[in-house]
């Protein structure tokens, strides 16, 4: 190999030296980052990412469920509506024929009975359709739940932003510019923190298997019973 294009290949010795040089640089970079505390900042920012991923996953699941729930309800409601209109059309046609050419009383009685049967059936069918409409409405509750989770995610993003800004600030040479930047970043952070430090405001649980979390209305009721409320 080495005799094919010797001019492009580094001599063995020089390539070793290069690897060693890169190694040294990496070590130096890592050490100076540690000295400045930057590795911790980056670590904190990186830790926030799985949480953001979980939240996005929750949003994806909730929106998918809502869409499916709505579409299923529509699939159930449409045949009910179709049936109502088909039967009405058939009866209307029979009535039109009867008016065009009035028949024996017996035949007319059948028509009247069928029509009454249909009329009695309409409220049942519309009620069933109404139930499906209600189901579609209830499916929209995802908007509230995902909205709360997205707001929480914006906090996570702010955290990552803060950590990255810290890294940038630390790279600015010491002096007034750096102090100003630091002050601004800290002020912003404290405002955000105040908003976040609310232990009872967590929004929907994205992982219901967590500790101290109820997984449904039954558990809420049990807990309240236990407490004597």
């Amino acid at each position: 190999m080495s005799n094919e294009t010797p001019s492009q290949d580094l001599p063995q010795e020089s390539s070793d030296e290069l690897v060693q040089r890169i190694g040294q640089l990496t070590r130096m970079l890592r050490e100076s980052m540690r000295e400045l505390g930057l590795d911790k900042e980056i670590e904190k920012a990186a830790e926030a990412i799985p949480d953001a991923r979980d939240r996005l996953n929750y949003v994806a699941t909730m929106t998918e469920q809502a869409a499916e729930r709505s579409l299923n309800a529509i699939d159930r409601a449409q045949p009910l509506q179709d049936d109502l209109s088909t039967r009405a059309e058939a009866l209307d046609k029979r009535w039109a024929e009867w008016f065009a050419e009035p028949q024996e009383l017996d035949e007319a009685r059948d028509l009247v009975q069928d029509t009454r049967g249909y009329l009695a059936d309409v409220p049942k069918r519309t009620q069933a359709t109404n139930q499906e409409l209600l189901e579609i409405m209830m499916a929209q509750d995802f908007q509230d739940l995902t909205g709360q989770v997205i707001k929480k995610m914006m906090d996570v993003i702010r955290e990552i932003e803060y950590q990255l800004v810290q890294v940038l600030i630390d790279a600015v040479p010491q002096g007034k510019a750096r102090e100003d930047l630091q002050k601004r970043a800290t002020n912003q952070w404290q405002t955000d923190e105040r908003r976040r430090e609310e232990g009872l405001l967590n929004g929907p649980q994205i992982k219901p298997e967590g500790e101290n979390i109820v997984t449904g209305q039954d558990q809420v009721d049990d807990l309240l019973d236990e407490l004597g409320f």
């Binding site: 509230d144 739940l145 709360q148 232990g199 009872l200 405001l201 967590n202 929004g203 929907p204 649980q205 219901p208 101290n212 979390i213 109820v214 997984t215 809420v220 807990l223 309240l224 407490l227 409320f229």
Partner: peptide
């Protein structure tokens, strides 16, 4: 949507009639 036990207890103690 708050589903922590502390939440339910806090609401009950504050006088919520239902949760």
């Amino acid at each position: 949507a708050e589903a922590k036990k502390e939440n339910i207890i806090a609401a009950a103690q504050a006088g919520a009639n239902g949760y």
